[in-house]
Amino acid sequence: MILQKLIEKFISLSEGKLTAQEWMDWFTDHKDTVEKICGRTAFLKIKTKESFSAIRNAYIGQLGAFEWLQSVKINTTFSDLYKKGWEKEFEDFCKAEKQKEKQLQKDVEKKFGYLKDHYPKFFRQLTRSYSDSDIIEAGVQQEFILNKEKELSMKIPEDLTTWYQNVSILKLEGIDIDFQELSTETIEKKQYLILGEFWLYGDGDQLLYSLENQNIYIFAHEHSPPKVIKIANSLSDFVEKKMVTYLNEYES
Rank of each mutant, 00 (worst) to 15 (best):
E8T: 07
I11T: 04
L13S: 07
S14K: 01
G16C: 09
E22F: 06
D25S: 12
D25C: 09
F27W: 04
F27R: 00
T28L: 14
D32T: 06
C38N: 03
F43K: 03
K49G: 08
K49I: 14
A54R: 12
G61R: 07
Q62P: 08
A65H: 02
W68L: 00
S71F: 02
T76I: 04
F78Y: 04
E87D: 13
E89T: 02
C94H: 03
Q99V: 05
Q103R: 04
Q105A: 13
F112R: 02
H118W: 01
F122M: 10
R128Q: 15
Y130C: 04
Y130T: 03
D132R: 06
I135V: 13
A138P: 08
V140P: 05
F144C: 10
F144L: 12
M154P: 01
E158K: 00
T162N: 02
W163Y: 01
Q165F: 03
L170Q: 03
I175T: 06
I175R: 03
I177F: 11
I177M: 12
D178K: 08
T184L: 04
T186E: 05
Q191L: 10
Q191D: 00
Y192K: 01
G196I: 09
G196V: 12
G204T: 01
D205M: 11
Q206C: 14
Y209G: 00
L211P: 00
N213G: 15
Q214H: 14
I216R: 07
E222F: 11
S224Y: 14
I229Y: 06
A232E: 13
S234N: 05
L235Q: 00
S236E: 14
D237C: 03
E240R: 09
E240F: 11
Y246L: 08
S252F: 15
